[in-house]
């Protein structure tokens, strides 16, 4: 039942044996040890599992690993380049955009998708763009501030 698939994650090619039913989020976490991608729900609401699939924010709990074969995957672990934090990572740190930190990787990945297409989003646009990412700690206010500050960084 298991089959071998090739996944390109954070610029590295991996060959993994998976069942067709294996969710991409689970494979990233269990097989590739990329545990920064979290799973917080089972109905595609919470967004903790958000990664980039071909550059676009995607809920990796709602994608089968076999579907992702041939795609370019980026996870939170691949966001910092050459040891330097991504501007969003810095901004979340600077603006206290996280508390428990569980939703944070997914939140940052969604925000990165937003900033890729909108360089100076309004508060309202930011709040709309992170509708698919739930945070129970921060009340969102500092997340919005962080994304705004990263946009102008």
């Amino acid at each position: 039942m298991k089959r071998s698939i090739a996944l390109s994650v954070n610029g590295v090619s991996h060959s993994v044996e998976v069942e067709p039913r294996a969710l991409l989020a689970q494979v990233l976490r269990d097989d590739l040890n990329l545990t920064g991608t979290h799973i917080g729900c089972d109905t595609s609401q919470c967004g903790a599992c958000t990664i980039h699939l071909n550059g676009r924010a995607t809920k990796s709990c709602t994608v089968l690993a076999v579907q992702a074969e041939g795609a370019e995957i980026t996870t939170i672990e691949g966001l910092a380049k050459n040891g330097a934090l991504h501007p969003l990572q810095n901004a979340f740190w600077e603006k206290h955009g996280l508390q428990c930190g569980f939703c944070t990787p997914g939140m940052i990945m969604s925000a990165a998708d937003l900033l890729a297409s909108n360089g100076s989003p309004s508060d309202e646009q930011i709040r709309h763009a992170i509708e698919g990412n739930l945070c129970r700690c921060t009340g969102y206010q500092n997340i919005v501030a962080a994304i705004k500050s990263a946009a102008s960084a």
Binding site: L79, F92, L98, T104, P105
Partner: peptide
């Protein structure tokens, strides 16, 4: 700035 954050913003926390 918080000292817990570097691990949490990089996916290096341990849950």
């Amino acid at each position: 700035k918080r000292r817990e954050d570097p691990r949490l913003i990089t996916g290096s926390g341990t849950f």
